[in-house]
Design a protein around this nucleic acid. Sequence first.
DNA 1: TGAATAGGTTCATTATTTGAACCATATATA
DNA 2: TATATATGGTTCAAATAATGAACCTATTCA
Lengths: 290, 290
Amino acid sequence: MWKRNSVKLPHLASRKQRTTRDGHTMGTISKALSLLNYFSDSVPEIGLVEFEKLTGQNKATVHRHLRELEASGYLEQNDRTKKYRLGAAVLRLASVREQTFPVRKIVEESVDRLALQVRELVHASLIHSHAKSYVMSPICFRDYGKNGTRVYFSEAEILPVHATASGLAALAFGVPSILETTLTNKLERYTDATVVDKDALIDMVSATRRRGFSQTDQSYEAEVCSVAVPFYEDGDFATGSIAIALPASRMNKKAKSRFVTALWQTAQAISMELGGSVPGHVRQIWKSAA
Amino acid sequence: MWKRNSVKLPHLASRKQRTTRDGHTMGTISKALSLLNYFSDSVPEIGLVEFEKLTGQNKATVHRHLRELEASGYLEQNDRTKKYRLGAAVLRLASVREQTFPVRKIVEESVDRLALQVRELVHASLIHSHAKSYVMSPICFRDYGKNGTRVYFSEAEILPVHATASGLAALAFGVPSILETTLTNKLERYTDATVVDKDALIDMVSATRRRGFSQTDQSYEAEVCSVAVPFYEDGDFATGSIAIALPASRMNKKAKSRFVTALWQTAQAISMELGGSVPGHVRQIWKSAA
DNA sequence: TGAATAGGTTCATTATTTGAACCATATATA
DNA sequence: TATATATGGTTCAAATAATGAACCTATTCA
């Protein structure tokens, strides 16, 4: 064995196009910010090499991005382990957002009331842009169910729009670009029941619009059924949704209609409290079905 | 008057160096992220031209940065007013951070207890990197004071290290780079009493280390006095501080010693609950003075 | 009506990002 | 004791992606 040639080779045509895993091109800012998305309840700390593997990007690039995020307070590095975790700056931003637009606070009360009423997991999520597409970010959840079986839920988890009831509500009642961008991306499969066909998804969205609520049957997690309705903050397009999720074994027609009626009432209340209102054409569907 | 020459001039030597207001060079990522810092309780929404003025950067650049932040969910644009506000992604990040490192939750209990005891404003802040320097980000505060005069406090406000008791505790007991970077920057003046001289600041830091607590007298806000002590999460350097702030009229020697003793106890409790401990040399000062 | 303000876009130019190779250190392995 | 492997981190020429002055468009306001 001999040492590698210590003469630096000239830069050949080796530079890759700046792309993500899925082939999307993106700017430096988006690339750096996407690093933050790898943190979750189960992955609270990430090291440099780990990031390199997760992102598929060059180590030097990742390192520079981590350092810049750290300098701005969005990351903190553990001096001992050298691993990175989310920094204190994110706490401040969330605080400002919640102080000035207290969506969580407002939604929380209604979710709580609803959860006490239906005795199943109730959660609310906001629609937001996320790396060339859209996702649902849970902002609160309650489960006052007294049953043995419970649906696991984490506020730190991002919900895909095409596989969850929450997301379908967003696709059907949110701004058109949500559906548009979703249809340009590959639909990831989570279970056997996940709809990954685009035409099938369009049909589900149409059905959701007709019904006035969305429903999924084990399309994201096995054994979990869910129904959801949109809420409105401003304008004629939904900004979030409330959902009820429960074990498939407890879902039936009667229960579903009870859930949907309760969701409609809650969504109307939330929309009002957020300073918005359910648009006429949606309200009509809700009224005539209730 | 005639129309401007419609022939595009070649790019002359007009391109500035990438700098901030204060003359620091910074990368694209830091520049983009710094946009988020302009949001606060009193400035919840900002338009493009407003950003241009605030940052002193070119409109096209700002616009691109805003769009990238929006695409990642860190900003949302109001379709009607075109103004930008903090996006839902920041809520998720804060949620993950707090779920996995529940500093706020842990500190909150102790702050609450202390606030009930001293009946003055108590607040806790975390030290973090922020655009080539360090700042204190409040994470919780309580005021059970029954007095007519109260100190105003906002969790959304960033505290400077050189002008607040919280910050002085960080300078004295945090990682050395806090003091180092602070001394390389210009010290902003907030009141007549603000220490803007670097040697004077070094003296204050030394005094703080000797005393085992920091104190300020109207150096950040007129009529407000404050004392603070550090807490430790990991290692021998402070990661945050707890402070008591009150109207100058109510501050006196006896009150101060009462506050400091209470702060020391609380800081020890917090440090322990955070999985850290007050380093020996600091604990000795606290013990011998108490 | 037209001046002012706002949001947003274009494209030649170049400053900034990029990545293969490199180093340093720590731990594991033969 | 060598040596292999893993980690975090750095370098610098090359190449790309960020930049900004001018430009466009829509609204507001006098």
